[in-house]
């Protein structure tokens, strides 16, 4: 079973060379720590920055320079600043190649729910509905089951939706799965030491298993 860092590490393998990527809050933020040296990637922060760098040293902290999670950050050489309208303009115009975000539930047709739990205080969708509505490619980082042991990979989402038919790939503590255009979670890889049987039990939505399922490979 993978911990959060390992989920981030596995997702980092999905990032293509010379791509623009938006990272959501939580596990997706950790992905930046595991980008291979031979991969050139430009991170977008939807509050208005392309070319986001690492967290600043104490002496570099600038209250006017934050990421979408409100953390202080730095800019890399070649960075560019813009306003929120242009930021979501480039998202909706599909200039951003990949969005990585968390989810509470994903359905077998690619619907995602990640912003609201009825009966709990709602904090808002932020930029998530924009990102999922227009991203060319969406990878979800999530736990396969909730704290009660119930599957979060479902035939249909039970929570209020963030977007429909948009998720392409999911990386959980148990597996890597893709969502097929015709519907269904296709099992691609198992976490080290996790059996197909375990993944079957943890997946309530339609699970497609073809041939031998390899274990995830880490350097």
């Amino acid at each position: 079973m993978l911990d959060k860092e390992a989920i981030a590490k596995r997702i980092a393998q999905e990032i293509q060379n010379n791509s623009y990527v938006n990272l959501g809050i939580g596990i997706p933020t950790l992905v930046a720590n595991y980008i291979p040296n031979n991969i050139n990637v430009c991170f977008q922060s939807e509050n208005g920055l392309l070319g986001m760098g690492p967290f600043p040293k104490e002496s570099e902290v600038d209250p006017d320079l934050i990421n979408a999670g409100k953390q202080t950050i730095t800019m890399l050489p070649g960075a560019a600043l813009f306003d929120s309208a242009m930021s979501f303009g480039m998202i909706h115009a599909q200039k951003i190649d990949l969005t990585i975000l968390g989810a509470m539930e994903v359905s077998e047709n690619g619907d995602i729910a990640n912003w609201k739990i009825p009966g709990k205080m709602v904090k808002g969708m932020g930029g998530a509905m924009d990102l999922v509505a227009s991203a060319k490619n969406i990878i979800v980082a999530m736990q396969h089951v909730n704290k009660a042991g119930e599957s979060k990979l479902l035939p249909a989402c039970t929570l209020p939706l963030t977007g429909i038919r948009c998720v392409k790939k999911i990386v959980t503590e148990l597996a890597v799965l893709s969502i097929l255009p015709e519907g269904g979670f296709k099992l691609l890889e198992r976490a080290p030491g996790v059996s197909v049987e375990t993944i079957k039990k943890a997946t309530l939505g339609k699970l497609i298993i073809e041939g031998e399922i390899p274990e995830m490979a880490f350097d």
Binding site: E46, S84, A85, F88, H92, G126, M129, D130
Partner: peptide, 11 residues
């Protein structure tokens, strides 16, 4: 509550 891009675009 409205999506962040929608907020920006309505402005």
């Amino acid at each position: 509550l409205i999506p962040q891009g929608t907020l920006a675009f309505r402005c």
